[in-house]
Design a protein around this nucleic acid. Structure first.
Lengths: 334, 334
DNA sequence: CTGAAAGCGCTTACAG
DNA sequence: CTGAAAGCGCTTACAG
């Protein structure tokens, strides 16, 4: 027995109305009286009518999809955006999208050209692009902007440019952290910094310097790395060459993990010999020993907000960038 | 100056051919001589013609999208599939999809009904579904199968059912691990098991028992948990109640992390007092102290294979389930 | 090798 | 409040 595809026409016939009316009833068009709409919904249900997402998209020239662009490099292994970041963010985004009847398409980016990126939108594969893990100096966006491709950054922005973004205000959390250490009577700080590649790393370094002054603490210097575990490990060696500071701030939790490994290997105890404070509150912060005192970066919330913002861009509404707060999470390392 | 949408018709006119020929040339139809095709491609390029993905999808009634269904629970916080798993898998899948001109849509699943899941395919939102993190007793699949919805499992399967899946052969890696400890003259083993909720947990327990016998080692028992960090932590307390075994196998790296935390809190040293062997080789295995000796689960490869398999299902080709090998990765904990 | 034509399923402006 | 009709951009079977 062949199953017949249930079309809108069939529903219309059964309901004694025209196909147009079925469309309107099912999409909640205001012109249709509730009694008619209810009847049509009931018949649709009984018949098992399933409106085609493709038909709708096609007609409206909208894919109803948000593109989430994720960097990767493939050398020996795949390098990913730190996984927690990626997955928590994506959950936030998916849940937002689901709520708006959008879906989320993930796009791997190993250096797609402006043109290739634009094509994702121009070919209606997605309606807009959300960029994660962008590095400074990436010059692909001017062209996207000129072509009016809806796009936003997450945890990145370009000073002086109108590109909208969602970012975390690192200052709130770092301020809490400074207060916290000041209250303990500590003063001598260092920063295991994240270098110049990421806007967020630069900002965190800037805020560190600013707050050190503001709180009248002593800065014993900055060891620059690149946001990686390895760079944290090497920072430990450098820091141990001189007399230890009382507190080491880290550009992110990955750096903090490497730093802790490095300090361990040098038989330096945390927090007894030196306190360590991370940034991001990745899952690993709760697993590593000692558990990491760190500053929470609201990845999940970022995902939701990124959804809101890109949708505004797509729909041509206001596109005000969004800044989310960070906050201190006290555990064992400081 | 208004930019005119470049259509296929315009390309056709400029090239002096019909729109049909443009379609054929651009999609590499064999009937078109290369000279004509080249000319049409050139003109398309010059004009900036962008074929609409929506048009194609609509006509072919295919979305060219693979749906990746990811479980979550939202209570206080979002619970995710372990992030590494998720992100490495997704990279493999995305790269495969990209290669085949498909894209990947992520679908959050907090207990969608069979019907809701089927709808994702029936409405042409995606062409097929890839299920991650499925638990035993999930009864949503019979209906999908009956409705001929293309779907596969990853790291799950249902004995006696024809549902296709991609899984990792835990035995290869666990065998290596057993050989490795046997070679060290160790014998007294325990398992911090993963309980009954996940097929993979059951299998790993089964394989553990089987190999213990085969290698003529001593089994001091199994402490069952649920694949979580917390369950590993509690396992440590239980294990420490009696005399310690020489080696503790763990159902996965999360359990191993919890176990290590628990053992640390009891002042039990790893590997001096007891060896610990994980499973999965998540990122954290390299971060935790001691670094975890574990069995690598090829997540990235799983993603690629999952892409292949679901595509076979979608295209109605053979659907042979795929088993990937695991292997021992020696670090510090054993 | 190539063109004219049909049709995919939908939505909405228009007319009533 | 509701229907008939146009049209979104594509692909392919058919005819030549």
């Amino acid at each position: 027995m062949l199953k017949i595809k249930v079309t809108r026409e069939l529903v219309a016939k059964k309901a004694g109305v025209s196909p147009s009316t079925v469309s309107r009833a099912l999409s909640g068009h205001p012109g249709i009286p509730e009694s008619t709409a209810a009847k049509i919904r009931k018949i649709s249900e009984e018949l098992g009518y399933i409106p085609s997402a493709l038909g709708k998209s096609y007609f409206q020239k909208k894919s109803f999809r948000l593109g989430c662009v994720i960097p990767y490099k493939y050398d020996n292994r795949v390098r990913t955006v730190p996984s927690d970041y990626f997955s928590k963010f994506l959950y936030g985004l998916m849940l937002f999208a689901q709520d708006k009847n959008y879906s989320v398409t993930v796009i791997p980016d190993n250096g797609l050209s402006s043109k290739e990126l634009a094509l994702k939108v121009l070919s209606n594969n997605v309606d807009g692009l959300i960029f994660l893990g962008i590095r400074n100096g990436d010059n692909r966006f001017e062209k996207l902007y000129v072509e009016k491709i809806p796009f936003i950054f997450v945890h990145h922005y370009e000073p002086g440019k109108p590109y909208p973004y969602v970012d975390t205000d690192a200052e709130a959390g770092m301020r809490e952290a400074m207060e916290y250490i000041k209250k303990q009577g500590l003063s001598n700080c260092m920063l295991a910094g994240g270098g110049e590649s990421f806007r967020n790393a630069i900002d965190r370094t800037f805020i560190y310097k600013k707050l050190i002054k503001e709180f009248n603490l002593h800065d014993s210097g900055i060891i620059n790395g690149d946001f990686s575990i390895k760079s944290g490990f090497f920072a430990a060696k450098k820091i141990a060459e001189d007399s230890l500071p009382e507190v080491i701030f880290c550009a992110n939790d990955r750096v903090a993990c490497g730093l802790i490994q490095g300090l361990h290997s040098l038989k330096i105890r945390i927090p007894q010999d030196v306190k360590v404070i991370g940034f991001d509150d990745m899952n690993v912060a709760n697993i590593i020993s000692p558990k990491l005192t760190t500053i929470e970066n609201p990845f999940f919330e970022c995902g939701k907000k990124a959804g809101e913002l890109i949708l505004s861009c797509i729909l041509g509404k206001k596109q005000n960038s969004i800044i989310l707060p960070s906050k201190l999470v006290i555990r064992e390392s400081a």
